[in-house]
Amino acid sequence: MEVRTIKVFTTVDNINLHTQVVDMSMTYGQQFGPTYLDGADVTKIKPHNSHEGKTFYVLPNDDTLRVEAFEYYHTTDPSFLGRYMSALNHTKKWKYPQVNGLTSIKWADNNCYLATALLTLQQIELKFNPPALQDAYYRARAGEAANFCALILAYCNKTVGELGDVRETMSYLFQHANLDSCKRVLNVVCKTCGQQQTTLKGVEAVMYMGTLSYEQFKKGVQIPCTCGKQATKYLVQQESPFVMMSAPPAQYELKHGTFTCASEYTGNYQCGHYKHITSKETLYCIDGALLTKSSEYKGPITDVFYKENSYTTTIK
């Protein structure tokens, strides 16, 4: 009895394709271990004539594949690729409408935090270190965002349907971005203890939790000093293409032309909904596939993004 075979390709990165001759009487799992086709788990399936010449994702289970996976995804987590594939199996079914010149995501599976993050990423200057993220990001900007969303979920250790947080998501993504040249110098002034300067680099240099107003941050924000008295913390120097200011959701007025974009969060910790506000020729609110415009805006804002380049204080 002759062994019926077909020729397929296996890959971990969709760049390096490895030619395989597979036995049609055995499952993919018996031949390769966990195997995925377009995100779908085909591990328990036997090869079919229609699979001839198709590319299958496999887990990096030998040295060659491990090197290829690390170079593309910059992670050695053995569960990463499987999590990416199972997320992709959902995100490829989502709709990605162009809204006001940006790629958004039609609401499904509690994905409003991903839509808000995706919209924000198209408006701030950011370059990702893992080629996987950078490639998928370019495709997302062009309207094909399924891979990018699935990668975000995998890097953030999230599953489809789980509630997510924009600030946490951005923080994970910033860790995989090139923020080497970003720098922030802060000064804390206390009447009792004097003053202390701190220099922050990388992710810490672009994120701040405690106030939404970048102007206020430049002037000074009140913080408790270690001595128990009130101290003032203010920005001395900022070198970065953008800054992200966050605070627990509270009524906040966004003035046209003073910011790049913002995240609105309605609801409580267990259950809520994100919308995205962007400042173009007027203010726009993007909620999944829905767009509304207004000249002014007041609502429960939790993150505001500002364009920056270089700032030095005039406070002496």
Results as ranks from 00 to 15, higher is better:
246 S>L: 03
14 N>W: 08
295 S>E: 14
33 G>I: 05
2 E>S: 09
241 P>Y: 00
122 Q>D: 04
165 D>F: 06
292 T>C: 10
219 K>A: 13
98 Q>H: 09
160 V>M: 02
213 S>C: 08
3 V>S: 14
288 G>F: 01
304 V>F: 01
66 R>Y: 09
237 Q>R: 13
59 L>G: 08
190 C>R: 04
183 K>I: 10
143 G>V: 02
217 F>I: 14
217 F>L: 15
5 T>L: 12
48 H>R: 13
242 F>H: 01
244 M>I: 03
68 E>M: 06
170 M>Q: 01
114 L>K: 02
98 Q>G: 06
172 Y>R: 12
270 Q>C: 11
163 L>G: 12
56 F>L: 11
86 S>V: 12
65 L>S: 11
177 A>K: 03
235 L>E: 01
231 A>L: 02
54 K>T: 14
165 D>Y: 04
13 D>L: 04
308 E>H: 06
9 F>D: 07
289 A>M: 11
277 I>W: 13
184 R>W: 05
61 N>F: 15
234 Y>Q: 08
53 G>I: 07
202 G>H: 05
90 H>K: 13
24 M>N: 15
150 A>I: 01
149 C>E: 04
263 S>R: 01
80 F>N: 04
54 K>M: 13
171 S>Q: 10
98 Q>I: 12
290 L>W: 12
205 A>K: 03
187 N>L: 12
114 L>S: 02
55 T>D: 03
251 Q>I: 14
158 K>P: 00
267 G>L: 07
117 A>Y: 03
309 N>Q: 15
297 Y>D: 00
293 K>G: 09
155 Y>F: 03
286 I>L: 07
214 Y>C: 04
194 G>C: 04
66 R>C: 13
96 Y>T: 05
230 Q>S: 12
56 F>Y: 09
219 K>S: 11
84 Y>C: 06
181 S>Q: 14
206 V>N: 00
120 T>I: 14
222 Q>R: 11
298 K>E: 13
258 T>I: 07
179 L>Y: 00
237 Q>E: 11
33 G>E: 05
158 K>N: 03
216 Q>D: 14
216 Q>P: 00
255 K>A: 10
220 G>L: 01
181 S>E: 15
72 Y>K: 09
89 N>S: 12
187 N>H: 11
294 S>C: 11
14 N>V: 06
10 T>F: 11
136 A>D: 04
276 H>E: 00
77 D>F: 05
83 R>I: 06
66 R>T: 10
294 S>D: 09
213 S>R: 03
